[in-house]
């Protein structure tokens, strides 16, 4: 059943609007504009004002993440490198660590630098993280510690995309093809 339901729904949804369509999931209006108060890679408290004016991608993860985070961030890096030079420079990716116990500012800086200059590491205390995750209807949780003190962290695998006004536009999933992500990032850069 799932084979035809998706194409039918998508085509129904596409016939609804005339404009060029987003290729990843459009969540415009479903969620509130970007807003947070977190700690940056230098240990300073920053809020959304420091990031206004450019298209912004938001991703939740942790630096000890074995698979989802590095894969997703590397894919975003690849997609961004396919954009034209100006757009590449404007794009900013906020990597919000939901594991502040292990991810201090230095660790975050080292981690995000590996993916490109657009990547910025942020984190915060439980209150700040809860406020931001709840705002976008996502969550996170911690597994049991093993003998070495390592533990797993559950987190959202989605990338939330905001235009330069901080309005929410897209939810990009692991399953979205790279071409679709590149096309949407291009469009996001023009979206005001």
């Amino acid at each position: 059943m799932g084979k035809w339901v998706v194409p039918v729904l998508v085509s129904l949804w596409l016939t609804g609007c005339g404009e060029q369509e987003w290729q990843t999931k459009d969540i415009s209006g479903l969620m509130p504009p970007l807003e947070f108060t977190l700690t940056d890679e230098k240990g300073n408290t920053v809020d959304v004002e420091s990031f206004r004016g450019e298209p912004t991608l938001l991703f939740f993860g942790f630096t000890h993440c074995p698979d989802v985070c590095p894969t997703t961030l590397a894919r975003l890096g690849t997609a961004i490198k396919r954009l034209d030079d100006d757009t590449q420079e404007d794009m900013q990716v906020l990597f919000v660590s939901v594991d502040p116990a292990r991810d201090d500012p230095e660790t975050l800086k080292e981690y995000t630098d590996a993916f490109g200059p657009q990547f910025v590491g942020l984190t915060g205390d439980k209150e700040a993280l809860d406020a931001l995750t709840r705002r976008y209807r996502v969550t996170y949780g911690y597994g049991e510690k093993d003998d070495n003190g390592n533990y797993d962290v559950s987190h959202s695998s989605a990338v939330f995309a905001f235009n330069d006004l901080g309005e929410v536009r897209l939810l990009i999933r692991d399953s979205d093809p790279l071409e679709a992500v590149v096309a949407d990032l291009e469009r996001l850069a023009d979206d005001t």
Partner: peptide
């Protein structure tokens, strides 16, 4: 995994 929304939004704990 049929329902990827729990991946996308994160699980309450790592299961």
């Amino acid at each position: 995994v049929i329902f990827d929304v729990y991946e996308v939004c994160g699980r309450a704990w790592p299961l």
